[in-house]
Design a protein around this nucleic acid. Sequence first.
DNA 1: CGAATTACCTACCGGACGTTCAGTTAACCC
DNA 2: GGGTTAACTGAACGTCCGGTAGGTAATTCG
Lengths: 197, 197
Amino acid sequence: MTTPRRGRPGYDLESLLQVAVKLFNERGYDGTSMEDLSRKLGITKSAIYHHVPSKEELLRLAVDRALDGLFEVADETAQLDGRAIDRLEHLVRGSVLVLADRLPFVTLLLRVRGNTKVERAALARRREFDRLVTDLVKQAEAEGDVRPDVDPAVTARLVFGMVNSLIEWYRPRRGSSAAEVADAVCKVAFEGLRTGS
Amino acid sequence: MTTPRRGRPGYDLESLLQVAVKLFNERGYDGTSMEDLSRKLGITKSAIYHHVPSKEELLRLAVDRALDGLFEVADETAQLDGRAIDRLEHLVRGSVLVLADRLPFVTLLLRVRGNTKVERAALARRREFDRLVTDLVKQAEAEGDVRPDVDPAVTARLVFGMVNSLIEWYRPRRGSSAAEVADAVCKVAFEGLRTGS
DNA sequence: CGAATTACCTACCGGACGTTCAGTTAACCC
DNA sequence: GGGTTAACTGAACGTCCGGTAGGTAATTCG
């Protein structure tokens, strides 16, 4: 299955990144030293620099993977036609699936603070995504499909507050698929948790 | 208005804590050095240690202030009677008000990772709060007031995902009061964002 | 005034941090 | 076996980190 690689066996960039991102999420990016990481990997600190030029590059790779996934869904959504609320539901559902599929990467992304250029670039892309969502909610409200008594910007943030909360509690397991979680999110977000309406 | 203090004027623990928590939120706790903080305060690093025995103590003070606020609301909620869904709404609304009132402290709390004893203690109290919420949702579902087609634990997490998202976007300003935001949260959470039902 | 109180400064410590450099080891291919 | 490729080691580096020791400055109270 796995393509046999040449040279001495060990980590490649991909497998190293997996471990790094997991550790960054457990202890925080700033709270994880390269020595912590090397210990977890079972190799020396300097060996990490064979695969990646700096600690920050690991962060860049991770957050880009998350952002690329989200923008794929956004682009997909933009090419749909039909009512805005249906496109919004598509975006919400797709975002949940990306969150679930790339959980460690998105987790790292959502905790970025903006201390460095890499982090600020990630925040800028995040804001762009947020703007897309807000515009979609505004349009759906203009079409009369979204409650008009709440500011669209607030609605957008609340819905994606729900979506993004997945990084705090969703853990992949056999049984509860990501699609089921996406259904739950859409139900609660669009219809509310109360019965009887 | 302010009680005149004795001794040399300057920071006291309270005013220092305000600045510290704000900076921790901007750069992350681990990403903020005591020298960063001293520069922001306009005093030397060692002067900080006149007010507080360690960096971690600043964190403890902050997260405890957030948790105390949340548990006050929870205790208040537990003493109510009536249907569980009404108590749940009270808890949600009250939590939003605490978030808004103690925003910097709650922000710091919600980013704690569990690297130290202080952080693990905070996480334990958070989990206790989460359990209260989940139990309330379960009860409301048993009383037939909450949609039965979503796992109560998931519902609880989604609703508080919405609530907790406030730390990412809510900024106090004249005009939009915290009570208005609490209304918006309750509307979307309980009735959904879609019109017509 | 002097005592009490409170906030602050200079100078420093040991250790942890991210990163570098010059080699070494283990696999594959001919 | 020899060449190629890729992963890794060990010892250092300059810097920044959280924290300490001992003395000083500015205010209030009597």
